[in-house]
Write a protein that binds this DNA or RNA. Structure first.
Length: 679
DNA sequence: CACGCTTATATTTTT
DNA sequence: TATAAGCGTG
């Protein structure tokens, strides 16, 4: 039986009968195994897969969990189909449920899902309309507006407080921001669009409204939630609403308060702390044996988290063998850090650790910029997770906007973009045309039909281009059964000349359409493709490269956030300097700083056998004007109790040496960079 | 009114 | 490095 492979605590968790269950699982304590075993155990005990709801933090985690559950269950029972489990992120599941049952709340089932960039675009439209653009004072950029909005809604805080705490430089515009937000909500509704937060808000409405709640509660026998420390109050409400009060709440949550790193998204550890009160009768299981890391690595990680003033009532211990002391390497500057990482990576590979079992972790996506250049120069293959800009590229947005207009003819942002594709069509003409076809009108005729079938005034110069746009859209709207990938192929004919006219490197951009087509393969409907793409965009350069060859090996680069839940034999943490970890942007108050500490803890605990931490002493191009500045070691590593767990190495060169060598080094990097842009 | 050119200016993490 | 705002031209 598969239970035999588990330790006592894990087995208790996996075979817990009914009722609420809280699993407090420290880093590396076999959380995934336990949860997957629980799923397998439930299936083996007769729970139908389609009556299981498994909420994970990312699509990747969902996939891994179901695969493992299937493998575990398959070993004891040949006849399970884990793919029928409802699994995915809160947002993805919300999306699915709302397409099925949203009508009860007055939602059009073909609603558009707005990602953060889309909602920024809506803000932008409103800012223009309400006349806040181009005044003497500088107005917050659209991304900032979207950021403020998301933070306010997620945290359920007053706008004024959010501004004061996180956006003090926008305080002067508080009234304008308020006006834009009010209009934003209204506009989303008339556009049949939901943003990320709406997916949760409407799901909660579905789970709590009198007319729909019982129907929803009927759907699932067991609900399991991974990474519970990173859920917010809204998500906790949803879980509570998912089960009627009078039946046992078969709810399992797994989390670790020491790894909570999504406070900026209003995640709250209170969800874990208050779980037993909110769900009375909850059983609690603690997993404290670490199977991942060697004792020295655990010693360092424990030392870092031990200094957190918040209580984390667990002491992880490891029975693993291995005695490599973590290294802390002080580098002269970033260039030397790059060299050191490359050297250490290759040294480990020489010893038999493939690149794929190694990862470089950092606080912010751009922290790996220099390293990426150096890796490319040395022909070391790598894949980067987090901070991918594929979906942000103008030409990708153009293509998706075309599909969005077809899918939801009330999508104002998409129309605004689409109508400006033909030559001589600018913002003013587009807006007039949108009014003419009634994009914002709630009445019968579809704006798409009106655009395709009715003649409309456009400037002479634009006539031909608009006609081309019409036929392109018609080509995809006539045949309702045309697969999304095939639709992109057709739109490509229209887009090729558009790209050639508007963008440079249009050949490369057209090639991106192939990537997009590849992503679309396998999706039956356009609507499904569009919403899944916004909810689960390609998160790594590898996602786009297609199926890699089996013999290929690559190093993983990842933000610490994206590394959550993953593990590698060798982990390299770079930029361990104050101002990087903790980020300069997150030192406002103690809560933020503590979250940064946990972030470092998460990074350190990703490692199985070897851990290397790097810190450049000197940063060039730091604040404006100053040629360079000196860094301090991260305040989380500075205390003697932490520092003593490392083996320290100094810079290879005496820092007192004149930096002539380094200056030529940066010149080389920059010219190399320049060579990358010019085709 | 569209478009191409110039210049100022950015604060991090993700669904 | 990308993008937004400003300005001149057609």
């Amino acid at each position: 039986m598969f239970e035999d492979a588990l330790n006592d605590a894990q087995r208790r968790a996996a075979t817990h009968g009914g009722g609420p269950l809280l699993i407090v699982a420290g880093a590396g304590t076999g959380k995934t195994t336990t949860l997957a075993s629980r799923v397998a155990w439930l299936l083996a005990n007769g729970v139908a897969p389609e009556r299981l709801l498994l909420l994970t933090f990312s699509r990747r985690a969902a996939r891994e969990m179901t695969t493992r559950a299937e493998r575990i269950a398959g070993a004891s029972d040949a006849d399970v189909d884990a793919s029928r489990i409802w699994s995915g992120t809160f947002h993805a599941i919300g999306n699915r449920l709302l397409r099925l049952h949203g009508r009860a709340l007055g939602l059009d089932p073909s609603f558009t899902v707005l990602d953060q960039a889309d909602s920024a675009d809506v803000m932008n439209l409103l800012r223009d309309e309400l006349g806040f653009s181009g005044r003497e004072r500088r107005f917050p950029r659209k991304e900032t507006l979207a950021g403020i909005y998301s933070r306010t809604v997620n945290a359920g805080e007053k706008l004024g407080d959010v501004l004061k705490r996180h956006y003090p430089w926008c305080l002067d515009e508080a009234d304008a921001v308020r006006a834009i937000f009010a209009a934003y909500t209204e506009r989303k509704r008339s556009q049949h669009a939901l943003d990320y937060d709406d997916l949760l808000l409407f799901w909660k409405a579905l789970a709590t409204s009198d007319t729909t709640r019982s129907q929803l509660a009927e759907m699932f026998d067991h609900v399991l939630v991974d990474e519970y420390q990173d859920t917010n109050a809204l998500q906790a409400d949803i879980l509570e609403g998912l089960r009627p009060e009078d039946t046992p709440r078969n709810l399992t949550v797994v989390g670790d308060d020491a790894q909570s790193i999504y406070g900026f998204r209003a995640a709250t550890v209170r969800n874990i702390l208050e779980f037993p009160t909110r769900f009375p009768g909850a059983a609690i299981v603690r997993l404290e044996q670490n199977y991942r890391s060697t004792p020295p690595i655990l010693e360092t990680s424990n030392a870092v988290i031990a200094l957190s003033p918040q209580r984390h009532e667990k002491t992880l211990w490891s029975a693993r063998r291995g005695d490599l002391t973590p290294t802390l390497r002080t580098c002269l500057d970033e260039a030397e850090q790059c060299a050191a990482v490359c050297g250490t990576v290759l040294a480990h590979r020489e010893e038999g650790v493939p690149l794929k079992e190694q990862a470089v972790l950092f606080r912010a996506a751009h922290h790996s910029d220099h390293l990426e250049v150096e890796l490319a120069r040395r022909n070391i293959p790598f894949v980067k997770y987090g901070g991918l800009k594929f979906m942000e590229a103008a030409h990708v947005k153009d293509t998706l906007a075309l599909m969005r207009v077809l899918e939801n003819p009330h999508d104002e942002v998409a129309w605004f973009r689409v109508l400006q594709l033909p030559e001589s069509m600018g913002p003013a003409t587009s807006r007039r045309l949108m009014d003419a076809i009634g994009v914002r009108g709630a009445d019968g005729a579809s704006p798409l039909t009106r655009f395709l079938d009715e003649p409309h005034e456009v400037p002479k110069a634009a006539l031909e281009g608009v006609q081309d746009l019409r036929s392109a859209l018609r080509g995809c709207s006539d045949e309702t059964t045309l697969a999304p990938a095939a639709q992109i192929e057709r739109l490509r004919v229209f887009l090729a000349p558009v790209f050639a006219r508007r963008y440079d490197a249009s050949a490369a951009r057209l090639r991106d359409l192939d990537q997009l087509t590849a992503l679309a393969v396998g999706y039956g409907t356009r609507g499904r493709f569009l919403s899944e793409l916004t909810l689960d965009p390609p998160s790594s350069t590898g996602d786009l490269a297609g199926p890699p060859h089996l013999d290929e090996d690559w190093l993983v680069l990842s933000t610490i956030h994206s590394a959550k839940g993953l593990e590698w034999d060798v982990v390299h943490v770079i930029h361990a300097a104050d101002g990087m970890i903790p980020s300069d942007m997150a030192t406002g108050d103690d809560d933020q700083i503590e979250e940064e500490r946990r972030l470092l803890y998460v990074a350190l605990t990703r490692s199985r056998d070897a851990l290397h931490v790097y810190r450049p002493m000197r940063y060039y191009r730091r604040p404006k004007g100053d040629p360079h500045s000196y860094s301090q070691l991260s305040r989380f590593l500075e205390p003697p109790d932490v520092r003593s767990t490392f083996e320290e190495t100094g810079p290879a060169v005496d820092p007192a040496d004149p930096p002539v060598v380094d200056l030529t080094g940066t010149v080389d990097v920059d010219s190399y960079l320049a060579g990358l842009w010019s085709e």
